[in-house]
């Protein structure tokens, strides 16, 4: 083995790598999106935006650590739009100082005031409800409260994913906001005692496990039902979706727990105008229809149509509690879940 060819090969590889830096971050007609949402879910929307506005969208899916990543990149960060799921994560972006205020009448007109930041640092784009999946064969429920999950009649009959998943943490956080921490602990312990299996898997497993007779009811997100029942996920999943009834549960005397997907303009956005254009497009009637039809989400825009599968659950009455209160209790909810050993 001689040194030169090997070293030269390394040098060539490294040069090629550096060449690919091609700092296209500032190029006109582009917008860079960092997202914690799964790319498959938002790609149709981004494609539609490119088609409508002629602006190319570059994406990277960063599941966790979006704020840390953008903060570390500093002022040279190519990020223009930061997208996240869950309200707490959006507020986290504000806390870490990686989003900037945006003033847009289009955004303000389309999004209800309680679903966006007063200073325009984040905007909700779509909503999902935390709903009850209930076996068609073995249950006959027309209404349900989150409080009911603790009732002894459900002993050994409930399936749910990890309490540390943001959706469940938000649901527990809202429970704390309604009832206080002590009552929430009693409730969560009782729910834990009712579980048919260890918390785990994803939301769709709840429907599958109901069909597999592991459990009778479970809590999961509304939009999975759309994907399962429509047949988009294949014939097998259709049988899971058809095995369940969906009930929109409420906190007793209040409404249904929802979680949002949203976005804000990055603090050092090199293509700021395009970023705002993208956000405005995402709340347009055209894009909101894609959220509803393609993703089976509840559109954020007032008056936008809901997919028939989702509409069949009945009218969504959103929990009236302040979203900020839910975010505030998120940490307490996560600690509480550990305290009662929910996932153990």
């Amino acid at each position: 083995m001689t040194t030169t060819p090997f070293r030269r090969r390394c040098a060539v590889l490294l040069a090629a790598l550096c060449g690919s830096v091609a700092a296209s971050a500032h190029a006109a007609g582009e917008v860079n999106v960092y997202t914690t949402r799964e790319p498959g879910l938002i790609q149709p929307l981004l494609d539609a935006f490119t088609k409508a506005r002629g602006i190319k969208v570059n994406t990277v899916f960063v599941k966790d650590g979006l704020a840390e990543r953008v903060a570390a990149e500093g002022r040279r960060s190519p990020a223009d739009v930061l997208m996240a799921v869950d309200f707490g994560n959006l507020i986290d972006l504000v806390d870490k100082g990686v989003v900037q205020p945006t003033k847009s009448t289009a955004l303000e007109a389309a999004i209800p005031a309680n679903l966006r930041d007063a200073d325009g640092r984040w905007f909700s784009l779509s909503m999902r409800a935390r709903v009850l999946y209930a076996s068609k064969d073995r249950t006959n429920l027309t209404s349900f409260t989150y409080e009911d999950l603790a009732k002894p009649e459900w002993k050994g009959k409930i399936c749910i994913r990890s309490a540390q998943h943001p959706y469940n943490t938000a649901m527990i956080a809202a429970y704390i906001a309604h009832h206080g921490e002590a009552e929430a602990e009693t409730w969560l312990r009782a729910v834990k005692a009712n579980l048919a299996r260890k918390p785990g898997g994803g939301d769709r497993e709840v429907a599958r496990d109901i069909l597999g007779q592991i459990c009778d009811i479970g809590i999961a997100n509304s939009y999975y039902v759309g994907r399962m029942r429509s047949g988009d996920g294949g014939p097998e999943q259709k049988t899971w979706g058809d095995a369940i009834n969906v009930v929109l549960p409420t906190y007793a005397g209040h409404g249904t727990n929802v979680n949002v997907s949203g976005a804000g303009v990055a603090a050092h956005a090199p293509n700021r105008d395009n970023a705002v254009a993208l956000l405005e497009y995402l709340v347009s009637e055209e894009a909101q229809a894609i959220y509803a039809k393609g993703n089976y989400e509840y559109p954020i825009r007032k008056g936008a149509a809901i997919d028939p599968i989702i509409a069949s659950f009945g009218a969504l009455k959103q929990d009236d509690i302040d979203l900020g209160a839910i975010a505030k209790h998120r940490k307490a909810a996560s600690l509480l879940a550990e305290k009662v050993g929910f996932d153990n």
Partner: peptide
Amino acid sequence: VGLVVLGSG
């Protein structure tokens, strides 16, 4: 330049 290390892989 943009991000030489993070931007290039």
